[in-house]
Structures are given as structure tokens and as C-alpha cells.
């Protein structure tokens, strides 16, 4: 702040104070169209969810106070534990596929050659399509009896699995479709990371005779850790909210084998009339996302190599 500005602030004249008050009012007016909806439809419902989580309620009855009972019920509910396991299965399945695949694509498409932008565009294409359309397409591709994937497998003598109709294969089916859809997204995030890297270190290493693998391991990857770390965090955060593709591919089945956390919240609320319990689960999910975000803030300081 300049000296004059500081002085004006210390000794405001009547007009200056009036001008500042008017500016503040104008600013609040410009904020109102977004602040009011955010307060009404994000902040207020958040408190309401916390309040509802302390009640037993089936959407129709009066809410009856049960204290922390819903949370205790969640802890001892095997299906909720299973939902968390399935969600974790999803995250741990999608993460390595998209991370390794996305990194390979980013490295390959960072090089300058003709047709590179077209290829980038093709790999990114699934990202802009709707999850429901993608889920239906993959149900068709992975159809156990008439799908093209099992037919192709039979050409090389493999008897394909039951995919989304088989409890053991329902999560892998969802993971496969999701990895296909998210690959281009991770690629773009990592390409942005690669573009931000300084080129002089690479050139120096090349002059010193370092090979491709050596440069990747000792220079590119360490420098790329912020982008890689960001991809991991964003995949975790999105992964814990997985719903659309599960709903459309398996509906959580067969036999609940792909019931994920958000699916469970949805089912508790609208199928079993357990809206209080569902609110408690929502709060737990929020806590998980909050912890991942806080972990990101700590981790960024701790082990990301910004140079």
C-alpha cells in the first residue's frame, strides 16, 4: 500500500468514507446473485444434512431424534462397509490404469510431430460424453453372450467372463469403462504439467549423454511430481463420488457386488426410506473428501518437488 493510500485510510474524509461505503454496497450487490444461491443450496443444506443425520426419518414421517445412533449403525452395517470396499476397489482399479496410461500418452504426445493434435483430440473425446451413454455402450461391448469383447476373446481361444452379469466381474467392468473415459482427462492434466517443465535441464542431460530412460527417471518424473500428485488427488476425490456409471452399468449389482457409497446413499434414501441414515453416510463421505483435500494441502508442502 502506498503512503498516500495509508494516510487516506487513517484520516478518512466524509466523502472518502461515503465513497468506500458505496463501493462496498456495490460489491455486495455484484456478489448477491451467486452468494444467495450458494448460501441457500450449498451451505444451508450442509447444516441440514448434519441435523438430519441425528434423526430417524423416512422422508415422510416426523424426524425423531436418535443422537449418534445412525453413525453407530453405519459402523456396524456390513453393507455400508462393503460399499466403502467397492468404492476403494474402484479407485484403486482406475488410478493405476489412468495414471500409467495417461503418463505414457502425455509423454508420447508431448513430442512434436504431425497429427499430434488430432491424436490428443481423439484420446480426449470420451471425456466430453455423458457417463450414461458410455455406460450403455460398454454394457453392449461387454455383453457376455453377444458382446464384441467376448467374441474377440473367443477368436484367440479365451472363454470371456460374464462381465457385468457376474458378481466377480462387475467392478472390473465398471473400472474398464471408467478408465477408457478418464484416460484423456489424465493425459491433458499431465501434458499441462510437461509443458510447464523447464527444457534447459533436459538439454544439459542430453549433452551429458543421458539416455531416454535415465532422463525420464531422474529428471522428468521428479519434476512432474506436482502434476502427478494432483492427478492422484483429483482421481481419489472423483472416485469416492462415483455413481452415474455404476447406476447405468450394474445398478449396484449383481447381488450388491458393485454397490458404491453414493449408490448406497441413494438407495437408503429413496428405496429403503432411511433418510437419516443416508444423511449420516453423506457426512462420512464428506469427511473422507475433506481429509483427502487436507492431505493434498499437507502433501504438496511435504514431498512435491517444485525445484
Amino acid at each position: 500500500m502506498t503512503a498516500t493510500a495509508a494516510r487516506t485510510r487513517l484520516l478518512p474524509t466524509a466523502t472518502a468514507r461515503g465513497r468506500q461505503r458505496r463501493a462496498t454496497a456495490t460489491a455486495y450487490l455484484f456478489l448477491a446473485p451467486s452468494a444467495i444461491p450458494l448460501l441457500l443450496f450449498v451451505v444451508y443444506p450442509m447444516f441440514r444434512a448434519a441435523w438430519t443425520s441425528l434423526h430417524e426419518w423416512n422422508l415422510l414421517s416426523e424426524k425423531s431424534w436418535v443422537g449418534l445412533d445412525n453413525y453407530a449403525d453405519l459402523v456396524s452395517d456390513p453393507e455400508t462397509a462393503a460399499a466403502f470396499l467397492h468404492t476403494l476397489y474402484y479407485v484403486l482399479g482406475v488410478l493405476p490404469l489412468t495414471l500409467v496410461g495417461g503418463l505414457a500418452l502425455a509423454l508420447g504426445l508431448h513430442r512434436a510431430f504431425r497429427g499430434r493434435n488430432l491424436l490428443r483430440g481423439v484420446y480426449f473425446l470420451p471425456v466430453v460424453t455423458s457417463w450414461i451413454a458410455v455406460a450403455i455402450v460398454w454394457r453392449w461391448l461387454l455383453n457376455p453372450s453377444v458382446g464384441i469383447v467376448n467374441e474377440a476373446l473367443s477368436w484367440i481361444g479365451i472363454d470371456g467372463p460374464g462381465w457385468w452379469t457376474d458378481p466377480a466381474w462387475s467392478m472390473p467392468s465398471i473400472i474398464l469403462a471408467s478408465a477408457w473415459k478418464d484416460l484423456g482427462y489424465v493425459m491433458v492434466l499431465l501434458l499441462a504439467g510437461l509443458q510447464a517443465l523447464p527444457t534447459d535441464v533436459q538439454e544439459a542431460a542430453m549433452i551429458d549423454g543421458a539416455g531416454w530412460w535415465r532422463r525420464l527417471r531422474s529428471i522428468t518424473l521428479p519434476l512432474l511430481t506436482p502434476a502427478l500428485f494432483f492427478v492422484v488427488v483429483i482421481t481419489l476425490i472423483n472416485g469416492f463420488q462415483v455413481f452415474d456409471q455404476v447406476y447405468a452399468m450394474t445398478g449396484g449389482g449383481p447381488n450388491g457386488s458393485s454397490e458404491v457409497v453414493v449408490m448406497r446413499i441413494y438407495d437408503m434414501t429413496f428405496r429403503y426410506g432411511e433418510a437419516g441414515l443416508a444423511s449420516a453416510l453423506s457426512m462420512v463421505l464428506f469427511l473422507v473428501i475433506l481429509l483427502i483435500t487436507l492431505g493434498q494441502m499437507r502433501g504438496e508442502r511435504k514431498w512435491v518437488n517444485y525445484v
Binding site: 451467486s34 438430519t52 433418510a275 444423511s279 473428501i289
Partner: peptide, 20 residues
């Protein structure tokens, strides 16, 4: 606070928003 609202996904607000 605006940025903090980005951490609250629709999935968490399903029940209260439906009620509202």
C-alpha cells in the same frame, strides 16, 4: 468460502436438497 463450497459435492447434499 466460495472456494470451500467446491469441496461439497451434490452427492453429499442429496437428502437435504430433495427435502428443500
Amino acid at each position: 468460502l466460495y472456494l470451500a463450497t467446491m469441496m461439497i459435492p451434490m452427492q453429499v447434499l442429496l437428502v437435504p436438497l430433495f427435502e428443500q
